[in-house]
């Protein structure tokens, strides 16, 4: 049970990171982006490639920081992956979503996002294969925190949780202490007035895609560090990040963070009751509960 909660918090951190960008994009561009979770996969695969390249260029970077399986090359690769994924998000918007936004309604955007997701996911499959990948073949030994009940924690898991929380804290500081953060919050609240206040909307849209892409890449890498990587990563996280967004209320960054942890823990706890095959449906049950009890989420203001 405690082990489930621990695992859930960890998955929750990954979901939260993914949901932060989704909630901003969904609020600002007013469409449910079903291609969004593919950014996690793009980020994780990009890190995989950069890690290999960096390790080949400078073998000294490849040794792991014990007891983590994380190496300097992977850490650098993650930063590069965050940049590349942010850029990919901007590029997808520029190539596809922006052009559809200009001439069609929001539902066409939702529609297009499904198409984009299908293309991205299967392009990744073609490039990297169906099989699961790992960043490191080293075996990460778990530390036994307690034998009764048995509670195991890996060093990588602790690192992932700390790193995810650090990213969220950094974003909190940006939102509350910097003029750029005020501009992001202003656009979220009232885009027209934000323009009057001198904020350029197109710049903000690019910023949100960059931030969302970078956070998603981090989420993808963090998940892969403690699990494994397959082309289904994006698909598997799609419903959880949507659930986190809806639980928190569309447009609320803090709601998305809380929602992510909630969905992670609830899914992990459900493992104690349900066979594991049903876990993919758990976020859906959470969405249902929110729609029944509090349709605009915990912090949301978006109306129909």
């Amino acid at each position: 049970m405690i082990q489930n909660v621990l695992d859930g918090v960890l998955t929750g951190a990954v979901i939260s990171l993914g949901a932060i960008g989704l909630t901003m994009v969904m609020h600002m561009l007013r469409f449910a982006n079903f291609a969004y979770a593919e950014l996690l996969a793009i980020g994780a695969y990009a890190a995989l490639v950069f890690d290999k390249v960096l390790a080949a260029l400078a073998p000294v970077l490849a040794s792991a920081f014990k007891p983590l399986t994380l190496s300097a090359s992977l850490a650098l690769a993650t930063l590069l992956a965050m940049a590349i994924t942010g850029a990919s998000a901007v590029l997808l918007d520029w190539l596809i979503f922006r052009r559809i936004r200009a001439k069609a309604d929001a539902l066409s955007m939702v529609f297009a996002s499904f198409g984009v997701a299908l293309i991205v996911r299967n392009a990744i499959t073609l490039a990297f294969g169906h099989d699961a990948k790992l960043f490191s073949k080293d075996i990460a030994f778990a530390t036994v925190l307690s034998t009764d009940p048995l509670i195991l924690v890996k060093a990588d898991q602790v690192f992932v949780l700390i790193a995810a929380l650090a990213l969220m804290a950094a974003f909190h500081i940006v939102l509350t202490r910097t003029a750029f953060g005020f501009a992001l919050r202003a656009v979220a609240e009232n885009p027209n007035l934000a323009q009057v206040a001198g904020v350029r909307l197109s710049t903000m849209i690019v910023s949100v895609w960059l931030i969302g892409g970078a956070f998603s890449a981090a989420a993808g890498v963090f998940y892969t560090l403690t699990n494994h990587l397959s082309p289904a990563l994006g698909h598997n996280f799609l419903l959880p990040v949507f659930a986190a967004t809806i639980v928190g209320g569309i447009g609320s960054v803090y709601g998305a963070v809380l929602g992510g942890f909630l969905v992670g823990v609830a899914s992990a706890l459900s493992l104690a009751v349900l066979p594991s095959g049903y876990v993919p449906a758990m976020p859906f049950l959470i969405i249902l509960a929110v729609l029944l009890l509090r349709p605009h989420g915990l912090f949301g203001e978006d109306q129909a």
Binding site: A32, F34, A106, L107, F242, I246, F284, L285, L291, P295
Partner: peptide
């Protein structure tokens, strides 16, 4: 009754479930 894309998310969820 909600934002138009909630139906998309909910029906997608029904399919997964």
């Amino acid at each position: 009754k909600l934002r138009h894309d909630y139906l998309a998310i909910a029906t997608f969820g029904v399919a997964v479930a």
